[in-house]
Simulated assay, not measured.
Amino acid sequence: MSERVDVTLPDGTMPAHRWLPESGTGPGVLLLQEIFGISPYIRRRAEDLAALGYVVLAPEVFWRLGVSDVPNGPSMLEEAMGLLGRLDWDAAVADSTQALRALRDDETVTGGAGVVGFCFGGGLGYAVVAGEPADALVSFYGSALPQLVDAVPSVSTPSLHVFGESDAYLPMDVVERITERVTGGDAPAEVVTYPGADHAFDNDDFVNHDADASAAAWARTEEFLARTLPTG
């Protein structure tokens, strides 16, 4: 079960959701949404992370647009893309950065703090740790990465980047360029790709879901977090 919490910002209050592990304390994970907001899928991934022993904080990044989540359905992609077109990217980065700071200050967080993001949240997470280093970053098919890897300073946070080899939004030549940049810095960076998987393949509520790639990528995520952000 999650609880509603607030992240205080200089110009307002961002709603967020917090999941606690069974122990009640643990390292923190900032969970950054897809373009569909704090969807049932994101909530399930939050529960998965809490089950691993993490305190999970998922901010409502679209709060300035008055939206918590986009309902599942045939128009979900069109509606979500419309929200993305209205989003203030710089404000989203600043808001998410403050959420990471709030997570670190949370009394239930013992140990370090990392970031896990999907699609929109995968690129957003990279932008956050570029300015506010964390202990770990897991980025699933970060849609903004092609614009970020050349523009942001070198990231010092250890990172894992996950892509599908049949991604219609991030084709393999783009993934190769991203790989060259993220692995070219001083921080450890791992890139893994999955044959036949399209964009958003981890989302089991979306048409592109690939069960085999999803299971393999999540197992890799668990292993990476166990190394970089151990719970015990």
Rank of each mutant, 00 (worst) to 15 (best):
L100Q: 04
G111W: 06
L100T: 09
E79V: 15
V5Y: 00
R4P: 01
V56R: 09
L229H: 06
T25K: 12
R44V: 02
T183P: 02
P195W: 09
A127G: 10
S154I: 12
V67Y: 05
V191I: 01
Y54I: 15
L30T: 11
R86T: 11
A197V: 05
G114A: 13
A197F: 01
G26A: 12
H199G: 07
L124P: 02
V182N: 08
R220F: 10
D105K: 08
L225W: 15
G184I: 13
G28A: 11
L225I: 15
L49K: 07
S156I: 11
T97I: 00
G121T: 01
L77Y: 08
D95S: 06
A187S: 09
L30R: 10
P27R: 06
V56E: 04
A94M: 04
V128M: 01
G112V: 04
M76G: 07
P171E: 13
H199C: 05
G232L: 11
D95P: 06
E132A: 13
A16M: 10
A92M: 04
A130D: 01
L100F: 04
L124I: 08
L100M: 05
M81P: 07
N208Y: 00
T221L: 15
Y194D: 03
A113V: 02
L145N: 03
R64P: 07
R45K: 15
A92V: 01
L229C: 02
D6E: 15
L100N: 07
T221I: 14
L20N: 04
P153E: 07
T110W: 02
A189P: 00
R64H: 03
M172I: 13
T13Y: 07
L65N: 06
D210M: 00
A134L: 05
E222T: 15
D90G: 10
G185D: 08
L148R: 05
R18D: 01
P74D: 14
F36E: 04
E78G: 13
F120Q: 11
E3F: 11
V116W: 15
L57H: 02
A189F: 06
P40Q: 05
E34F: 01
D198T: 05
S2Q: 14
R220D: 09
F36L: 12
G12C: 09
C119G: 10
M76R: 10
M1T: 14
L145C: 09
F118E: 06
S39G: 11
M172T: 15
G28S: 10
G85L: 11
R177T: 12
S139C: 09
R43M: 09
P74N: 15
Q33G: 08
L87E: 03
A46T: 02
T8I: 14
S156H: 13
D150C: 11
G82Y: 07
V149C: 04
S214D: 12
V162H: 03
M1I: 13
G123R: 06
I178S: 02
Y54V: 13
A51W: 08
S159V: 02
G111A: 01
G121H: 08
